[in-house]
Design a protein around this nucleic acid. Structure first.
Lengths: 141, 141
DNA sequence: TATTGTTATACTCTATAACTATA
DNA sequence: TATAGTTATAGAGTATAACAATA
């Protein structure tokens, strides 16, 4: 059986991702966040303990690239960064209450905006799309 | 009714797009194509007449950015580029037979690889995912 | 010697601005 | 003067390599 012709996945997904990120920027700016800063805050929500290198890797960034991001987040009081008593080479990163609430407020606005885009889909397609997206996303990361 | 929590769309889609593009690169390289070169060949398939500026815009690029790409494609014999007799300022771009066959062979390999990724989905989810993706992609471009 | 975080350097990609040739 | 294509310049973003502190 031959599948009907379709555009390349990449040719649809990559521009869609860029458009979503561009649409997020004004929201992040209102909350005083950059894209990488927001990515770090999201990454910090998943597991409790973090070295900078592990954090960078988990969000797909280079360890050298997030240093300035961490400096800014720390200056803004959104994260805490201190030496690990057990191994003084590593810095442990943790969300502050302000960091958590800022992240949550920004995420709420972002997902509301995303939901408006998803509203064009039927409920069944929307559910299937999100289910498929989670699966595909997990299988490439 | 409250929707169940989910990751941000952008946080799933953008990395997925990057992973797909990275996975395409070896295929494109085997066919002597760059990512932008392939994008141009895809863009040329949609409508017959093209000025460089219109072509650039249609693939989300700057007019200054595709000039080198067009030079390379022309040198490789994949496109023809000649002055428009009606307005000698503009250059009309067209696929050569070689350009068309190269594009089609590369696209076949790329979509085969993408299909392997999609095989993890149920047939229903797969169809819904592609349907939704087309709709979302069209609504942001 | 190996590893964490940091800094410095170089490289790629992209955007902006000037130039030409036509209109 | 306005526009299509081109070229040149500058800027942002990213990757690579070298460094200091600690293990």
């Amino acid at each position: 059986m031959q599948e009907s012709r379709r555009p390349d996945l990449a040719a649809m997904i990559a521009p869609l991702g860029r458009a979503l990120m561009t649409a997020e920027l004004p929201i992040l700016e209102r909350h005083g966040l950059t894209m990488w800063g927001y990515a770090v805050l999201l990454g910090l929500g998943r597991e409790p303990v973090y070295t900078q290198a592990a954090l960078a890797k988990s969000i797909g960034a280079d360890k050298t690239r997030i240093i300035g991001v961490l400096d800014a987040l720390q200056n803004a009081g959104l994260i805490e960064r201190g030496p690990d008593p057990a191994d003084r080479r590593v810095r442990l990163i943790a969300l502050t209450p302000l960091g958590r609430s800022t992240r949550d407020r920004a995420q709420r606005e972002i997902q509301q905006q995303e939901n408006e885009l998803l509203d064009q889909l039927t409920p069944a397609d929307r559910a299937a799309f999100l289910r498929a997206l989670r699966a595909l996303s997990a299988s490439v990361s």
